[in-house]
Amino acid sequence: MAECKPCVTPMEERLKLMKVSTAAKVDATFYRSIVGDLRYLVHMRPDITFVVGYVSRFMEDPREDHWLLRYIKGTVDQGIVFPKTGESGLQLTMFSDADIAGDID
């Protein structure tokens, strides 16, 4: 991925990947390792949470079209910092949306 062209979005809009694919197989152990690293990175980069969950579906039989790492390459300087505040503490508000119906398999 050192030579890849970065992109500005984590995933193509309306991208639908399937477990049954004609793309070339990739090393499953390496794929699982990368997905595990991305799951750790989600704690500091919530912008990739959906994509990491999406590519986690394909750990059993990963294919070339299941790689979605170009966004990480282009945004390595981004992240969340939780600064120490005064007596008031830290207030964190989060929102989530699930699209289970978008799962083709």
Rank of each mutant, 00 (worst) to 15 (best):
M1F: 05
M1N: 04
A2Y: 05
A2D: 13
A2T: 07
E3N: 15
K5V: 04
K5A: 11
P6W: 01
V8E: 12
P10W: 01
P10M: 02
M11F: 00
E12F: 03
E13T: 11
E13N: 10
E13Y: 03
K16Q: 12
K16D: 06
L17F: 00
L17I: 00
M18W: 01
K19T: 03
K19E: 10
K19P: 01
K19G: 10
V20E: 15
V20I: 13
T22A: 15
A23H: 13
A23L: 12
A24F: 11
K25M: 15
K25L: 15
D27P: 02
D27E: 14
A28M: 15
T29D: 06
T29M: 14
F30L: 15
Y31Q: 01
R32T: 03
S33R: 12
I34C: 08
V35L: 07
D37C: 12
R39D: 00
Y40T: 09
H43C: 12
M44N: 11
M44R: 06
M44K: 09
M44L: 13
R45W: 05
D47I: 02
D47K: 09
D47C: 06
T49Y: 11
T49K: 07
F50K: 07
F50L: 06
F50P: 00
V51H: 02
V51Y: 03
V52Q: 06
V52N: 03
V52C: 02
G53A: 10
G53R: 10
Y54W: 03
V55S: 02
V55P: 04
S56C: 08
R57A: 08
R57C: 02
R57Q: 13
F58Y: 12
M59E: 02
D61L: 11
P62K: 11
P62T: 07
E64H: 15
E64C: 09
D65R: 06
D65P: 10
W67V: 05
W67K: 07
L68K: 05
L68Q: 05
L68E: 04
L69P: 00
R70V: 05
R70T: 07
I72Q: 03
G74F: 01
T75Q: 09
V76G: 04
V76I: 13
V76T: 14
V76K: 10
D77A: 06
Q78V: 12
Q78E: 10
Q78S: 05
I80E: 01
V81A: 08
F82L: 15
P83K: 11
P83A: 10
K84Y: 11
K84P: 11
E87W: 13
S88R: 15
S88G: 05
G89A: 01
G89N: 06
G89I: 06
L90I: 12
Q91A: 10
L92M: 14
L92G: 08
T93K: 15
M94E: 07
M94V: 13
S96A: 13
D97H: 10
D97W: 01
A98V: 12
A98W: 14
A98P: 01
D99L: 03
D99T: 00
I100L: 14
I100R: 10
G102I: 10
D103H: 05
D103S: 10
I104N: 08
D105R: 02
D105G: 06
